[in-house]
Design a protein around this nucleic acid. Structure first.
Lengths: 203, 203, 203, 203
DNA sequence: TGATAAACGAGACGGTACGTCCTGTCTTTGG
DNA sequence: CCAAAGACAGGACGTACCGTCTCGTTTATCA
């Protein structure tokens, strides 16, 4: 029966310093060499203050990424998903932006670390998925449903499957580094997903 | 000037024991808690014998997975990729088998571990990709090119992109555990990739 | 310029609870594992209330021992040192009582703790000596001076030295646990101190 | 079932460095502020190397003191206890030397630390007594028995008691710092112990 | 009889050291 | 003459307390 700490007394100053230090360090030394001790030292904080509020370095990084995502959203005024009426164009725009984001080291390092840690640690993976991933996927799904209503997407299409057809290949390339993430690639991906790759015979 | 060890004198007995111990332990305790010391103890081997031949625990696991893949191939008499002439059927069969393999804990644990480690460590990732992944991708590509020659696949389709459209979503679901890998899912994936998801208007 | 706290507002309830907790805990876990945090928890008191009034756990224990000694004195109606006119008998009675007290765990634990702490920390040692030890020694000295006036003790004897000859060996055995503290031992000690151990030749 | 380490493989170099560092540090910062971490750092040794061979910092210090005592004995060619035939003179010489030793900070600090630690920790105390103290006491006892045979000491005197009458008061003054350890004091002590302090009436 | 100021309980904080575990290297020894 | 066994220097782990510092909450004078 360990009692949870009183979050009312929590020091916001320390919380921010820890998240900032974690983000900075994961970029500098990588996830494997990231240590709680180094985060504490960089943040000017006692180790216990980290252990009091987070169960692992992965959890710290998850919160740091959430904060980063929150700021990024606020900064860019990205309230939602574009919906110009042209599904292909909208998807291409978003996938290009996503590819660019993956190319930015500030996001790349923590995103890789979390994805990898989540793949290995189911509990963390669940939190990662729920808190960071799903909200994004929901935006895609909303846009796709709008397209369905507009008659641009097959009415019986599995919206979730379509999202994964778009993000799966992109994530695959990014994570496994099998090839660079160019705009040409994401554009081709959108086209292929929408129209299929089988040879269309005259009917 | 460290001299590379004489691979002629290498003990096959120890090598196998180490790989087996690594596979067993990664299943028992997970990758993060897998230690070289435990592998050595389980294998009845001195630590130095591991350090002599592998640079890291990830490298041990990579070799262990290669050995496992070799055996699996030999066991099942899987010489190649089916080519019955029906592209969709062949892809569905292979993707079903792949999904089943991901569901087998003996493969799941090391595969997750290596994918995660490779995502974080570029050098290991490169070896993982080259030695384990690419050979498999090549089989898909060969089958797809055969389909192109047979007029079942668009002649201008980017074969590599198509492979990623098939394996990307599958890997995405597996790695992030967003949903279970059912045969219904893989079948739907193949269909969607081949025919596209956009509403086909009468032309 | 830190202001000393206002002792008028001091909570007697807390003071007693702290001293009691300290005595109880030193008996349970020993001095080395005695912590201010545990004392505070046991006493149902904030840590600051301890730090406000005592500089160290040793100081707390010293006050606790002083209180204990006060009570013990009050309980047993021990106002002074016996003076029946028979020096040897009086000393034996007191040394027996002292030996018995050392055998009582309620006194043994804090006494050992304070003696040990005082041996290592000169400042604490000085307070321990002045406040607890010297008052007792003074009683011995008074009795011995009375004996000198009665012609039972050599007029030129160094009274302080004699006290140490009585308490030194006793303390030595107790502290170093070289042998049990029996009444036979204390009796023999008194006799030996008074008459000496050298063979008395006929003169 | 933890296995004891193989003492055959022990590094003599590390052992000496640890003992030397412990002695140096206990003199510099005192026993309470002596930390295993500091000893390891000063000795250029991993902490584990200390924990492998000693259970506590007190045990390290005990071994260090044993080594010191061994050297001191070897250095000074102190083969035994003087036996000139004059018991009083011999005892005075040895007690003077003992008092001088207690005045030497190199011996004072570790001796205090061990005595205090042993008073609090019975197991350590037993080792301290057996390994360091008893061998010295045995020398006193031998000299006293020799005096008994020579008719200088009462034949029925408890030799152990006499030793404690000599060392008890000395130790008492040293440990509690009630008064300085002068040669005048040790001389008076010897005389008082031998001839007693009671007024000798004409017989 | 309230106002107000201090001491109080609670406990988060920046730190230090603990004792354990593992890393990767080096050394000894037994088959 | 290897290779197992394992000691070594190093360093991070997660925990326990240190002594300091707010937080509200009692108390308990004095205005």
């Amino acid at each position: 029966m360990s009692k949870p700490p009183d979050s009312g007394r929590r020091s916001e100053r320390s919380r921010r310093a820890i998240l900032d230090a974690a983000l900075a360090l994961v970029g500098e030394v990588g996830y494997n060499k990231l240590t709680i001790e180094a985060i504490a030292a960089r943040a000017g904080v006692g180790k216990q203050t980290i252990y009091r509020w987070w169960p692992s370095k992965a959890a710290v990084l998850l919160d740091a990424s959430l904060a980063l995502a929150g700021e990024a959203g606020a900064d860019s005024g990205w309230s939602g998903f574009p919906d110009t009426g042209d599904l292909a164009a909208d998807l291409k725009a978003v996938l290009r932006a996503t590819a660019d984001e993956f190319a930015d080291p500030r996001h790349d390092a923590p995103a890789r670390a979390l994805t990898a840690a989540g793949a290995t640690d189911p509990e963390l993976g669940a939190r990662f998925t729920d808190q960071l991933l799903e909200p994004q996927l929901a935006l895609y799904e909303a846009r796709l449903r709008s397209a369905q209503r507009a008659g641009q997407l097959a009415a019986d299409a599995d919206v979730r499957l379509v999202v994964e057809m778009l993000l799966g290949p992109l994530t695959y390339r990014w994570l496994l580094r099998t090839a660079p993430l160019t705009h040409a690639y994401t554009d081709a991906l959108v086209d292929s997903v929408l129209s299929g790759v089988a040879k269309v015979t005259v009917r």
